Amino acid sequence: MRDLETARSVVRTIAGLAGGTLDIVAPTTLAVDPLADLAGAFRRRHPAIDIVIVEPPNAAAVADVVRTGECELGLADVRTHGKAVETLELCRQEVLVVVPRSDRFPQVGPVALGEVARMDLVAVVPLVLAGVGATLLPRSLAEEAARRGAVALVTRPRLVRPVWLMCRRGPLSPAAQAFIEVAREVFARPVAASPEDDEH
Rank of each mutant, 00 (worst) to 15 (best):
T68Y: 10
M1D: 12
V11D: 02
T28N: 10
A76P: 02
S102M: 01
V98N: 01
A178Q: 00
E196M: 15
V25K: 02
A152D: 01
T87I: 03
V62D: 02
A142E: 00
I14T: 15
A117G: 10
A176C: 13
I49F: 04
E185G: 04
D64C: 05
D64K: 10
F179Y: 01
D198P: 05
W164I: 01
G74V: 01
V108A: 11
R2Y: 09
V97H: 00
P34F: 06
T6H: 07
V163R: 06
L165W: 01
D120T: 15
A146N: 09
E115G: 09
L4R: 13
R158T: 11
L141T: 06
E144F: 03
T21K: 14
V98G: 00
A145E: 05
Q93N: 05
D77F: 06
L141G: 06
D103K: 10
V11Y: 00
G20M: 13
V62R: 03
A117I: 06
V111K: 03
R184E: 15
V25N: 07
A152C: 04
G131Q: 04
A31H: 06
G109Y: 01
P47R: 15
L73N: 02
L113I: 09
H81V: 09
A175P: 01
E144R: 13
L96D: 05
C91G: 13
E143N: 12
D37H: 14
D3S: 05
R79K: 09
R168I: 02
T155N: 10
L4T: 09
V65F: 11
E89S: 15
L90W: 00
A152R: 04
E143Y: 07
T28P: 03
A188I: 11
I180M: 05
V122R: 05
V124G: 08
I53T: 11
R2A: 10
V125Y: 04
E199W: 08
A48Q: 10
R79A: 07
E199A: 14
R79D: 02
I53S: 03
L90G: 02
V99Q: 04
E185D: 09
R169F: 08
R148G: 08
V122K: 04
V191M: 13
L96E: 06
V25P: 02
A117N: 12
E185T: 05
A48N: 08
E70C: 12
I49P: 00
E143F: 06
R92E: 07
P174H: 07
V25C: 11
G131W: 01
A63H: 03
E199V: 13
A117T: 11
E181F: 10
A60Y: 13
G82C: 06
L75I: 00
L17T: 08
L38P: 00
